[in-house]
Simulated assay, not measured.
Amino acid sequence: MTLIFAHRGYSALYPENTMLAFKQAEQAGADGIELDVQLSKDGEVVVIHDESVDRTTNGRGYVKDLSYSDLKRLDAGFRVKTNLKKEPIPSLRDVLEWLTGNKMICNIELKNGIFPYQGMEEKVIELIREYKLEKRIVLSSFNHYSIVHCYRMAPEIETAPLMGQVVYMPWVYAESIRAKGIHPKYKTLKDEVILQSEQYGISVRPYTVNKEKNMAHLIKLGCSAIITDDPVRALRVRHRLEKESK
């Protein structure tokens, strides 16, 4: 069965990368969530996509230049008009603590391509181990050196390189860096790449799949998961296909 991962939580309807978006994804029935992490000025692992807070919050500046208490004061929900309540930027600890109360999988993307946050991998792994969530986490990044570093420190935690371009025989590449999955941009994917990767035991989880016809195509091909802003739509498509195949 193709799993449904909510991209930055249920971000089609709720403020991305907030506890509200993650909880709504769980309520919708998503199998997992995807989120992004960066480091605050004082070294806290915080959940936010951009290197700066300008787009998603009512603040300004780079995450790396703001303390955790500065970041906590910002409203990460103010751009979503239906959101009446302030939504703080969560810490990774907040999310992992919440995950201990459910069975969801969590894909943590390390955002260290622009600013190479010193020690971020160590901090993330330490938190995962503290909450004993090693078996329910997938670590991904466009910075493949970073995920190799994670694998060497914590071979028990699954890694999956993010791929924005076409990679030749990605299942071979994944195996060479000891990754158990790949997270390619869905527009770059050819059907045979999905089939061969999955056949070789490499999980394919394309991002960001929001159109029903693309969801249906990838589910029919047997992708391990799809990453989508709209888990409700994806679950509806999966349910329809399951009924049709009976």
Rank of each mutant, 00 (worst) to 15 (best):
E130N: 08
L139Q: 03
V138Y: 01
G113R: 08
I105Q: 08
E134W: 03
I105D: 00
I125R: 12
R129A: 04
E134K: 13
P116E: 15
G119Y: 12
E130Y: 10
G119D: 13
I108K: 09
S146F: 11
E109N: 10
K111P: 01
I147R: 11
H144A: 06
P116Q: 15
L133E: 00
L110Y: 03
I125L: 13
Y131K: 13
Y145P: 00
I114N: 06
E130R: 14
S141V: 06
R136Y: 08
H144T: 13
Y117D: 02
S140D: 03
E121T: 15
N107W: 02
G113Q: 10
F115Y: 15
I114A: 07
I128S: 02
H149E: 10
I125H: 07
C106L: 10
M120L: 15
I125Y: 05
H144W: 15
Y117L: 07
M120Q: 15
E122H: 08
V124D: 00
I147Y: 08
F142H: 04
S140E: 04
S140R: 07
V124R: 06
E130A: 04
I105T: 09
K132V: 07
S141F: 05
I108V: 11
E126T: 13
L110F: 09
N112M: 13
I114T: 14
I147T: 11
C106I: 03
S141W: 08
G113V: 14
G119N: 11
I128Y: 03
I125P: 01
I125D: 01
F115D: 03
N143Y: 05
R136N: 13
E122Q: 10
I147L: 15
G119V: 12
N107I: 12
F142P: 00
K111F: 04
V148M: 11
G113C: 09
K132D: 08
L133H: 04
G113L: 09
H144K: 09
Q118S: 13
I108M: 05
K135T: 15
N143D: 15
Y145I: 11
I147P: 02
L127H: 05
Q118D: 09
F115C: 02
E121F: 09
E122M: 02
I108C: 06
E134T: 05
Q118P: 02
E121M: 15
I114M: 09
C106R: 05
E126A: 12
G113S: 12
I128H: 06
V148L: 15
I137F: 07
P116F: 14
R129V: 03
G113H: 04
P116R: 15
S140V: 07
V138T: 11
E109C: 07
V148P: 01
K135V: 01
R136D: 03
E126K: 14
N143T: 12
I114K: 11
E121Y: 11
H149P: 00
F142T: 01
P116M: 14
K135S: 15
K135H: 13
L139W: 05
S140C: 12
G113M: 10
L139A: 08
Y131A: 06
I137W: 06
E121Q: 12
L110K: 05
N143E: 03
I108F: 05
E134C: 13
I128Q: 10
S141T: 03
V148W: 10
F115K: 07
S141I: 06
E134I: 03
I105N: 03
R129T: 04
E126D: 09
L110D: 01
E109G: 04
S141R: 05
N107K: 09
K135Q: 14
V124N: 02
L139K: 11
I137P: 01
